[in-house]
Design a protein around this nucleic acid. Sequence first.
DNA 1: AATGAATGAGGGTTCATTCAT
DNA 2: CATGAATGAACCCTCATTCAT
Lengths: 214, 214, 214, 214
Amino acid sequence: MAVRRFSRRRSERTPSLKASAAGKRKLILDAAVKVFARKGYYGCRVSDIADEAKVAYGLVYHYFKSKEDVLNSIFQERWTVFIELLRQLEKLEAPLADKLTRIAGALLDAYRLNPEMMEVVIMEIARNAKFFDKANIDLFTQAMGVIERMMAREAAEGHLRRSVPPRVAAYLFFSSIEALLTGFVVGAFTARSPGEQAHLRDQVVEVFLKGIQA
Amino acid sequence: MAVRRFSRRRSERTPSLKASAAGKRKLILDAAVKVFARKGYYGCRVSDIADEAKVAYGLVYHYFKSKEDVLNSIFQERWTVFIELLRQLEKLEAPLADKLTRIAGALLDAYRLNPEMMEVVIMEIARNAKFFDKANIDLFTQAMGVIERMMAREAAEGHLRRSVPPRVAAYLFFSSIEALLTGFVVGAFTARSPGEQAHLRDQVVEVFLKGIQA
Amino acid sequence: MAVRRFSRRRSERTPSLKASAAGKRKLILDAAVKVFARKGYYGCRVSDIADEAKVAYGLVYHYFKSKEDVLNSIFQERWTVFIELLRQLEKLEAPLADKLTRIAGALLDAYRLNPEMMEVVIMEIARNAKFFDKANIDLFTQAMGVIERMMAREAAEGHLRRSVPPRVAAYLFFSSIEALLTGFVVGAFTARSPGEQAHLRDQVVEVFLKGIQA
Amino acid sequence: MAVRRFSRRRSERTPSLKASAAGKRKLILDAAVKVFARKGYYGCRVSDIADEAKVAYGLVYHYFKSKEDVLNSIFQERWTVFIELLRQLEKLEAPLADKLTRIAGALLDAYRLNPEMMEVVIMEIARNAKFFDKANIDLFTQAMGVIERMMAREAAEGHLRRSVPPRVAAYLFFSSIEALLTGFVVGAFTARSPGEQAHLRDQVVEVFLKGIQA
DNA sequence: AATGAATGAGGGTTCATTCAT
DNA sequence: CATGAATGAACCCTCATTCAT
């Protein structure tokens, strides 16, 4: 119904269910994610994004300042969501194990649902950081900061080995999950079913926790 | 033929007094490392490399087929050295802890001596794997394979928790070290003195081992 | 038909209370004058004009066929007015000195009231003549023609030196005034008060007349 | 002979007498003059310049920073030459009439030899001044300054009417010549033979001098 | 009449690579 | 070996214009 209201005033150019109006922006972002994942940021042309989104070339520049702005927008919107999740988990009264399991689960779920997105958003930022907008590094640092506070709290309760600073713990945890994603990407291991994936998730969290616990 | 051409690269083309032949090639590679690290592979021009090496940019094309060939040469030479190290450690009769400590130590030393090199060589490969020469991925996979065999051997001796497959363990270990490097790069932590660095190295190895041990 | 369409531009399309119809058109033209003067014809975008006029840029295309049409409209409306003035002066029974003084005065007055307009309308035409609509050159030529006839009449009465053809005289006179405007634009001289301006005007006319008189 | 020395080392791509090495820069500038005059600065593409010069597209960017830089280079090199001429005339012990005749003659000669050049260099600067590099306005102002000093000297000797400030006189003189050029360009008058041209030159100088003399 | 989203050709610029010397 | 002039394809971005509402 909603669709009809939007799409039927006059004839549609293509009868596909294209999002109208403001939806175009999202259409472009989604297309960009696919294209960046497929060919890399530098390996694709802006026209690839437009083609994938089935919009005119120029429209990309209607919504974004530049190709880089498209990438930054993806980064920032995704990381903002992720940081929001972290902040909610931080508030929770629950064992660290549960929180970390949920963080890992969220990232792996996201990967299962949209692997390209995660390749672009997780695997590029930590490393290309230096070459991108400072805002991106800030978001990464913020996220690590929240995880660090979770670790610090656990440490304060005496559950962490004293030799492991919370910040190091945070980086190690995040990199563990990255390791899984890297493994998926290079085909070192797979997890087709949600069950397998949950298993892998639990392994990683367990290894990490055993590693840092007092 | 191909082999011959390859071996020429390493030996001198002319046994003249000058170190210029092989010397210039190394000059260019070293310059490339710096420039790639500073501006990224895509962010720099071939002439930037030549400028840094203080040679004419036409010369880059005497020693390398293309800009990408420069990058691949760096990757391959470094990873070949690293894999050689891994293979020697693999043969050693020593506790896993020692071996891993030496691996981590070697990588962190290399980072201290030439941070740009490691940023380029370690941090680019996992991520950009997909877009690079298959040969690079092979090297990465080989290296992981050696570490995996170390883990498998330890598992065979019953020292590893059964829930952690050797391959996952290998990736987790490598990613731990990467986490440190990432931390250095984004400035989350520093280790100016060799002492601090050794400390960090031991923490990471300890956390990892505690995490995976039975 | 064409005539009708043209005349509509001047009269109101709808005789409603609003001055919006014709008003908006003038709004856009005035804005265009400012913007052309500020950034040049090629240096501005249609949206700059619309922004200056505070209308949506689609509206520019209601009133004008194209960006060039906006420029041509300005040219033509202004030059038509100027030619009209020249024709009225031509009919007058008065000494050439008076006529030229009034021409120069009119142009300098116009400059004082709307310098941007004159920069666009006077200073662009001679130069860019070649690249513009032929209609614009025709107007320029017409205007020069009227002045030339004034000169010819004076010559016929024996007041002009014989060595100076009326057409050359016309061009020299017009260029004298242009010289003043150029001087204003580059800041070589100023004439803030109407008095100073009238003085400058008289100097120029005097120099010109002394130059051509028999 | 000189040609042979340069052009015959290996086979030429085209057997035309193309200037080699540093001559390419001049080749491009000369082509740019033609193209700018023919289609206007904004009306031509950089590739038009390259085509006209019969060089590869990219070579333009080997010698010039940008399209605008090409234009500025033309302006500056020509105006520098013109200013040099003015400075030499300034030093001369000769009646003003002679000096002005030589200035006008030089400009008209230049126009006859290379009309496109003069259209670009003389007719664009005075007006587009505002939109171009400040350096261009400076050159224009410098040139006017030299002429102004010539006028001032004449005034000091009591030969100029007191009502005409030297600076105004300088602008009027320059604009007189511009008027001739404009007339040529719009086809209002022609001067095919050097004789006709000299005649026109003398008329203009005479009119100007009679106009300003005491 | 008025809006501004959508279109897409056009063109400036970059830069990897080749080549003549 | 070494140089850097020369080449030209590739690609980002701009912006005049159209169109649906």
